[in-house]
Design a protein around this nucleic acid. Structure first.
Length: 502
RNA sequence: GCCCCCAUCGUCUAGUGGCCCAGGAUAUCAGGUUCUCAUCCUGAAGACAGGGGUUCGAGUCCCCUUGGGGGUGCCA
């Protein structure tokens, strides 16, 4: 493969907020195609709609892409030969190409106001006619258009669609033909002078020598428009592949609004953006692995694999046509598996990222050193997300006096059977005080010994201690729990627990 | 309304005319392991949307119906 047919793909988000989880799947497939063929992955910011621009969103998108490990070869911060990579910085480029087709007669100035267009659409709907733009006749000349614009009349540029059917050759869907009468003259330059998405996208893809366009299926009907622009401009047509869409389990779209709705109802908002999953304690390895299976499959019974393996297996031929639903339960299971499998060092790194982006977590935890964090991670092996670590080991990072006792745990473990748990604690207290070696092994030995002495089950000894030191029935295994807490804290908490029983 | 795309267990999917009375994963259910939670182990149940063709033979090809999704913006 020589340079002229090297794979060049791009991901082109618009800066309207965080990176959506569905967008992440699009990124992944593009990235995989580039990496598999030793090609180039380009990142381009499509900021041609000034009204929807959200401050700081480029930074956030870049940050989440990095978290996923989706590195780009050309784009913001990386640079590259076909920049700039912000469309808002390429206005003169679009203008040049626009002039070209305006002069050639393939596009024309159009002077209807938004209100007029709206009225035309309404009328068409009322009369049950097709809602298509009717090309004015005669067409305004270029000079008339410019004059109108210069005196302040809102003017747009439309592409004059050729009167012929257009067939899209799609690597996933096959051939899709749209009839000529379905193709209307659409806007390629807005009245504010900015190009529309269609125009900017086609010009940039051509100039950036993009060879494959992988995007969501919602763009399928845009493709004939893009092909028409390419023909008018004399550009070649890249390969297209439209990816199936990802929905919620109930079949609705996964949208940012789901979060607002949940909050209104007082529910936990669902994860929608990549950042939500990151902040909820998911691993990028698991998210990517799970996402790869939405619309693609390796063809055998293998389901879990890392990026390298995925890259070698990935082909567009194996991408399916069917829309998928986002099964959070399965993601959770994948995350559980990945957290059990990942090397300690990598897990620690991921955990630290989790801590760094969750400022509401206890400061003592966020500032804990690597050695302690590793021990905590190790004690919690088998966790589903990093959030589980908080429920299981959060008590380690709370002051002795700030421990909240869960009333249900107290009732069940300590107060039940005539305060049997409290009695056990009292019996345990001196033995713990006098134990020589404060280690997990000897502490567990002690618990075992007591079980034998009292002829009772482990739970009857371990649970009262667990509740006394953690406030709940959940913690790592008892020896590890007490080791991590340390002798002083353990004894202080037991003492406090007993004093509060009076 | 018009146009386009899609259709296998609840969910993600394997299946490219005989290897499929349909395989895997996840969820569910029933057991088991365990000091709690979570893990972990074993087993069970669970699908080719419906109807017509084509063919010796159809989940796999064709048509219709139904269902789902997308488009129909001076959003991307």
């Amino acid at each position: 493969m020589n340079d002229s047919n090297r794979v060049r793909v791009r991901f082109a988000p618009s800066p309207t907020g965080y990176l959506h989880i569905g967008g992440a799947r699009t990124v992944l497939f593009n990235w995989l195609l580039a990496r598999k063929h030793g090609g180039t992955f380009i990142l381009r910011i499509e900021d041609t709609d000034r009204t929807r621009h959200v401050e700081d969103s480029v930074r956030k998108i870049l940050d989440d892409l990095r978290w996923l490990g989706m590195n780009w070869d050309e784009g913001p911060e990386a640079g590259g030969e076909s920049g700039p990579y912000y469309q808002s910085h390429r206005l003169d480029i679009y203008k040049t190409h626009l002039e070209r087709i305006l002069e050639s007669g393939a596009a024309y100035y159009s002077m209807e106001t938004r209100e007029q267009l709206e009225a035309m659409r309404k009328a068409a709907k009322r009369e049950k006619r097709n809602v298509t733009y009717v090309r004015p006749s005669p067409l305004p000349t270029v000079e008339e258009g410019r004059k109108a614009r210069d005196v302040g009349h809102p003017v747009v540029v439309r592409l004059k669609m050729p009167n012929e059917d257009i067939t899209v050759r799609d690597d996933i869907l096959g051939e899709v033909t749209l009839a000529a009468d379905q193709l209307e003259d659409f806007v390629i330059q807005k009245s504010d002078g900015f190009p529309t998405y269609h125009f900017a996208c086609v010009v940039d893809d051509a100039l950036m020598k993009v060879t494959h366009v992988l995007r969501g299926q919602e763009h399928l009907m845009n493709t004939p428009k893009h092909i028409a622009i390419q023909r008018a401009l004399g550009f070649s047509t890249p390969r297209y592949a439209h990816l199936p869409v990802i929905f919620n389990m109930d079949g609705s779209k996964m949208s940012k609004r789901d979060k607002e709705k949940a909050i209104k109802k007082g529910l936990q908002p669902p994860e929608i953006d990549v950042h939500d999953f990151r902040a909820a304690g998911y691993l990028p390895e698991a998210v990517l692995n799970f996402l790869s299976l939405l619309g693609w499959s390796p063809g055998d019974d293998l389901e879990q694999f890392d990026l390298d393996r995925l890259t070698s297996m990935f082909t567009i031929e194996r991408v399916g046509k069917t829309n998928a639903r986002f099964d959070r339960e399965k993601l959770l299971a994948f995350n559980t598996d990945w957290s059990a499998r990942l090397p300690d060092a990598r897990l620690l790194e991921a955990f630290k990222d989790y801590l760094s982006i969750n400022p509401e977590l206890p400061q003592s935890l966020r500032q804990a050193d690597d050695a302690l964090l590793s021990q905590v991670l190790d004690a919690c092996r088998g966790f589903r997300t990093f959030a589980d670590i908080l429920t299981k080991a959060g008590f380690l990072f709370v002051d002795n006096e700030a421990i909240q006792y869960d009333p249900k745990a107290v009732k069940k473990v300590l107060a039940k059977n005539d305060n049997a748990g409290y009695d056990m604690l009292r019996a345990l207290q001196p033995k713990l005080e006098s134990i020589a070696d404060w280690s997990a092994v000897s502490l567990e030995e002690l618990v075992h010994t007591i079980c034998e002495e009292k002829e009772c089950k482990m739970g009857q000894v371990a649970q009262p201690i667990r509740v006394a030191v953690s406030g709940s029935t959940i913690s790592p295994s008892i020896g590890v729990t007490l080791t991590l807490l340390g002798r002083d804290c353990t004894l202080a908490r037991i003492k406090r627990c007993l004093s509060e029983s009076m």
